[in-house]
Amino acid sequence: MALGTLDRTPPPFFRQGPSARTKLLFFSALALFLMVADTRFALVQPLRAVLATALLPVERTLLVPVTLVEEGYVYLQGLKTARAAEQDALARLAQQSLQAARTRQLETENAQLRALLELRPGITARSLAAEVLWQASDLYTRKLIIDRGAKQGVALGAPVVNEQGVLGQVTRLYPLSAEVTLLSDKDAAIPVINGRTQQRGAAFGGVNDALELRFMAANSDVQVGDPILTSGLDGVYPPGLAVASVERIDRQAEGGFARVTLKTAARMDGVHHVLVLEPMERQLPPRPEGLPDLPLSASASASAPASAPAGGGGRR
């Protein structure tokens, strides 16, 4: 066989094209060109859209196991939480059932004792549901306008409450609406009682959207967290309604009185629906003749004009 007929080309494994450095420079320049072209002229956007559309089924298929694992974990966690909530609800229901049974027993005993002592039946406050229309435009007062007025049976000075506690009372009455002064108003005041010690006092508003329990001695038995309730002695508020709780006590105040700051039980902002109660004085027996007329509540006296004489007399 002649030597000239032999194939002297190297096998494919030993064939060498451009060098590795050349390939690196070429592909780096191509990548840089594509990035600049995509940023300035969006040339690669159609290609990216085609690739995204083509790869979407593949991505969804690959995400199926991950989604199943995540949903299964969430389902198990939710099932565990639901069982714990069910157990807690059952425990609270049992406790409430026990409290309801005790309450019925106490009501029966109370009725029997009142009959035995020949006392008049306890006062039941009648209520009227109302909706808050808007807040008063005066920036220096805390007042609301409700959609119930004199024609619906709302009385001047009627207490206004919600599911959290006392909000205030009606201070201005119209035929189809009424103005409610909130407890946090600077002219509001309400007679209260400490639910722990049964010590009576008066709470005043206008202290940074909070209440202040005034005229309490510096050594009085008041603690942070004490519940403050309506006393029912003003003939307006039914007794036992939640008013506030003691938030801060300053026993170093001047004048021998402690400065007691209260946090209202009911949230004063964002109120939409309220209950207007009938003043207690409508259900109380008539006042004996000869006794002076007292104001409806402490807030009514606090909202009186400041120029009026304190004792109601004339000039000296």
Results as ranks from 00 to 15, higher is better:
R196M: 05
F204A: 07
A242R: 07
E278M: 10
I193H: 02
A304F: 03
G206S: 05
P292I: 12
G205K: 04
F215T: 11
L182Y: 03
P309V: 12
E289W: 15
L182W: 01
R287S: 11
S184G: 11
A258T: 03
L277H: 02
A258R: 02
S220L: 07
L241D: 05
L277S: 00
T197K: 01
G313L: 14
D185T: 01
R267C: 10
E254C: 12
E179C: 09
L229E: 02
T230W: 02
P309K: 06
G256L: 05
G225W: 03
R200T: 03
Q283Y: 14
N208T: 15
P309M: 09
G225A: 05
F215G: 08
A306W: 15
T197H: 04
L275V: 11
D221K: 03
L229A: 02
A189K: 06
S299M: 09
L275D: 05
Q199A: 08
Y237E: 01
A306L: 14
L213A: 04
M280H: 05
P286F: 01
S301L: 13
L241M: 07
R251T: 01
R251H: 09
P292C: 08
M280T: 11
S303M: 11
Q198N: 14
P292V: 15
A308P: 05
A308Q: 12
A300M: 11
T261I: 13
A308V: 15
I228M: 00
Y237R: 00
I190C: 04
F215H: 14
A217H: 11
D187R: 13
V274T: 05
L291A: 13
A244R: 01
L213Q: 02
P286E: 10
N219G: 10
N219H: 11
E247F: 09
E278V: 15
G290P: 07
